[in-house]
Design a protein around this nucleic acid. Structure first.
Lengths: 246, 246
DNA sequence: CCTTGCTCCTCACGTTACGTGAGGCCCTAC
DNA sequence: GTAGGGCCTCACGTAACGTGAGGAGCAAGG
């Protein structure tokens, strides 16, 4: 049995395919054996083997069975065109997976920082990361990541508490019509700017992105983070900042 | 209809999912609405929405529905572990696809060089590339690629014809028991070494890899390339090379 | 001649995450 | 009463086979 025509098992052994795969190729018309024994056993002759080798080559390049079939049956575009299309698709996929890998790596980093590894916490982090990606550029996120790792857990808590203290104060002042240039508000404005500078590394573009995020996703964020500045508060404070500079 | 519980269409609109996906999640037990109207319409309450958001978060990180389900239902390993496993898988996939992309790019280059873009020729090139990858390291392939692009098509044909001329001569000499140190063979040995040096860039490791490839895949290669040196011929010639040096 | 054991055959279900109808009920508005 | 939209439950299709199930072909040994 060392010479063609070969039965399916023999061909499978010689080509490293599975018998089932050869059956499948037969089913879809990709590789139909030219002969059958009277009992119905498939017999592959030399030409079949050659076609199978071509199939294996094309599959190695990542073509689907359909693409392979239409290339071999000639009813297709030029090979060069197919390759180019395929290559473009591949690059897209690689880019997507690379982005995903980056996200996962960042997530792992977060998980190492926040020792509570509950699924709940995990989802909150993912949600925050996702939201951030919508509002910040890649470099900005990089800056924020660096600032974050450079800050202790305790300091992070302090910061959060500071905001929890500041925001209601500002809201009260705003609603009672207090002058943004009054000394109390100016003091708060200074703390506000310090906190922002600490978080953003002094980059005004990042501060802007944060403001955009808060104003357009205020309610959703408030649910997760507690009190959050809104559009009106940003306007009020910007008047205070102007007074600070003067 | 702006407050929970929501019907499936409403929830779909608010979360960007498809109604079919929500049905599917219900089918597989990933997200079963806590309520139904008497008519059987699904009603999702606040907790359901929250779970859906978690599902979306985990899916964003590339988890499968099964993985998502077992994470949310807590019957799984630590999130950190899952992330690490997933990340490892991703890196593997990326590496594979990157290798494939390299192969495709190389293939495109070949196609640009050889103007005949028949599928047959294409498959031959792929087969050759695949075989080469088995015997040469990545750097060696890089060297070969550079040598190749630096060589004209005409020169390549000349080289091939030279081999077609040399190999039968050597075989004849060998079979008639001619001394490898005889002047005729020494002359051939010089041509042989020049051709090898031209192809390998003078790297003996590459020459060795070529010899290994020919001796272990001789028959298969002979079918495609015409006459090819075999083990015995390499040994015969190495004696001639020794005589050359002396 | 019969059994053993290996290979072969043809179904046909399972895999992933839904898309896409088909056929029919619920509910509201005109 | 009916027209329209949303909802329901099947159920097939997707890519490339893996994995049995049940049955037949075929060479060798008893």
């Amino acid at each position: 049995m060392t010479t063609p025509p070969w039965k399916v098992g023999e061909l499978a052994r010689r080509t490293g395919m599975s018998v089932r795969a050869l059956h499948h190729y037969d089913d879809i018309g990709l590789l139909e054996p030219s002969l059958r024994t009277p009992a119905g056993h498939r017999l592959y002759d030399r030409a079949d083997v050659e076609r199978l080798q071509q199939i294996q080559s094309l599959r190695l390049m990542g073509l689907s069975l359909d693409e392979t079939k239409s290339m071999l049956d000639g009813a297709s575009m030029s090979p060069r065109h197919v390759i180019d299309l395929h290559l473009a698709r591949l690059h897209e996929q690689i880019a997507m997976q690379a982005r995903l890998a980056e996200r996962l790596a960042a997530l792992a980093q977060h998980l190492d920082a926040a020792e509570s590894t509950s699924v709940d916490e995990l989802c909150r982090i993912i949600e925050a990361m996702t939201r951030m990606e919508k509002y910040f550029t890649a470099e900005q996120l990089e800056v924020l990541r660096e600032r974050r790792v450079g800050v202790s857990l305790e300091r992070a808590k302090e910061v959060q508490e500071s905001w929890a203290e500041i925001i209601p104060k500002v809201r009260n002042a705003m609603e009672s019509g207090m002058d943004p240039a009054s000394p109390e508000i100016l003091a708060i404005a200074r703390r506000w700017q310090d906190l922002v500078a600490e978080f953003t590394g002094g980059d005004p573009a990042i501060a802007n992105a944060v403001a955009t995020m808060y104003t357009s996703e205020g309610p959703a964020l408030a649910e997760k983070l507690g009190p959050v500045p809104d559009q009106a508060m940003f306007q009020y404070m910007s008047r205070s900042f102007a007074a600070l500079k003067a």
